[in-house]
Amino acid sequence: MDRFLGGGGNRDTSPFSGDDFVDWSDRLRDVEEIVNDPELRAEAARIRDEARELRREQIETSSPPQWDIIQQKVARPLAQLQNRVAEELLRRTAEEARVPLDKDPVPTQYEDAVRRYYERLGSSE
């Protein structure tokens, strides 16, 4: 997501303020075409459409990107979609796993807490 927003405060490299919006949108379309789950596919399309509309408004008004709106309408949903696609991939490969994986997604209100837990776990804190 840092790459999407430009990371480290240098937002000139993000698709919304730089020149690579078309490439970014094409990569999201690729995800949309690859996933089999209709709900995930629809969410990828919705995010891409939202991003395209925000980019169009930005260009028409010659205004800088409104990062808070981009974060709310594109970046957060994109991060959630990334997690859901990863979960789906894990479910499909679970037969090879030694421990069965839970089939239910993490409830939305607990996503941040679960993410922080796994980040701490992975960093050996």
Rank of each mutant, 00 (worst) to 15 (best):
M1E: 05
D2K: 06
D2V: 04
R3G: 10
L5N: 02
G7T: 06
G7K: 03
G8L: 11
N10T: 00
R11H: 05
R11M: 01
D12C: 08
T13W: 04
T13M: 13
S14P: 03
S14N: 02
P15V: 02
F16K: 01
S17N: 10
S17V: 09
D19T: 07
D23R: 11
D23K: 12
L28A: 05
D30E: 09
E33G: 12
I34D: 15
N36R: 12
N36G: 13
P38G: 04
E39F: 11
E43R: 13
E43N: 07
A44E: 08
R46K: 09
R48H: 03
E50S: 07
E50K: 02
R52E: 15
E53T: 04
E57T: 03
E57F: 01
E57K: 09
E57N: 12
E60H: 00
S62N: 13
W67Q: 00
D68L: 04
I69C: 01
Q72H: 07
V74L: 02
P77T: 04
Q80N: 11
Q80S: 11
N83C: 08
V85M: 12
A86N: 13
E87T: 04
E88I: 02
E88S: 11
L89N: 05
L89K: 10
L89Q: 12
L90D: 08
L90A: 12
R91M: 08
R92I: 02
T93V: 10
A94V: 03
A97I: 03
L101T: 09
K103N: 13
D104Q: 14
P105C: 06
V106A: 11
V106F: 11
T108M: 12
Q109W: 08
Y110H: 15
E111D: 05
D112P: 01
A113G: 14
R115K: 15
Y118F: 15
Y118V: 06
Y118S: 03
Y118A: 05
G122H: 09
E125F: 14
E125R: 12
